[in-house]
């Protein structure tokens, strides 16, 4: 069978290409870029979590691009699943009620999950966390509500407003960095403050909040499109 032998050939070629990477000797020292970031990152930006400073500041333009890709993927999901006429019977039937356990548990757990998400977003520059993680946890909280109470998702207009406003805030902070500090996405437009305290690291917490709201809104939109709540 020619197809099967082609597949085997492709796997062998892939293994051959990737093999040098697998036997790479373990390194003892950081590369040049990583050494510079770990040596100067804290004094430059004031953020205790170097991963967050890489995401938000050193590679901030990449993150802006990734958020754009996320937006495009969400728009693609909405576009592909869009249907003008409501002829299918499956969509018009009344949604089944969730069980009492799920409803009670959702009401009980929802505030705590939201608080956890907000905590992780706001502490992204001093402990593990940040906009992406916290935004996903916020989306999980709203997913719980969507599962427990069908038809009670976040209103579509509110989601789109949050998404657009947070995206605008991100770009606005980036342009403020260009105007005040001289670089696009420069986070030193605010004082860096005491490293390790909550109010520190310049504009990094603000950008984290923008990323968190944007990621949460995009994820809830994807889930609502796939679940066909109202969109």
């Amino acid at each position: 069978m020619i197809k099967r032998s082609l597949i085997v050939l492709l796997l062998i070629v892939t293994a051959y290409i990737l093999y040098p990477l697998a036997i790479l000797p373990p390194q003892d020292n950081l590369g040049n870029a990583a050494a510079a970031i770990t040596a100067d990152g804290v004094t430059d930006l004031g953020a205790a979590n170097l991963v967050t400073s890489v995401i938000v500041s050193y590679r901030g333009l990449d993150t802006l691009g990734e958020v754009t890709v996320l937006f495009l993927a969400t728009a693609g999901v909405g576009f592909v699943l869009f249907r003008k006429r409501k002829s299918d019977t499956a969509d018009t039937e009344v949604p089944r009620q969730a069980s009492e356990f799920l409803q009670t548990g959702a009401i009980f757990l929802w505030p705590y999950i939201v608080i956890l998400g907000i905590f992780i977003i706001f502490h992204g520059h001093i402990s593990p966390g940040g906009g992406f993680q916290g935004g996903v946890i916020l989306a999980m909280a709203f997913l719980l509500i969507m599962l427990a109470f069908p038809g009670k998702a976040l209103p579509e207009g509110f989601r789109h407003a949050m998404e657009s406003l947070s995206g605008l805030a991100y770009v606005g902070i980036a342009i403020a960095g260009l105007a005040i500090a001289g670089d696009f996405l420069n986070t030193r437009i605010l004082p860096t403050g005491q490293t390790g305290s909550l109010i520190s690291a310049g504009a990094i917490p603000l950008i984290s909040v923008a990323i968190g709201i944007k990621v949460g809104a995009e994820m809830v939109t994807i889930l609502a499109h796939l679940r066909k709540e109202e969109a």
Partner: peptide
Amino acid sequence: PIPSALVLT
């Protein structure tokens, strides 16, 4: 920290 940041996104 750079691979962590890349994988995170």
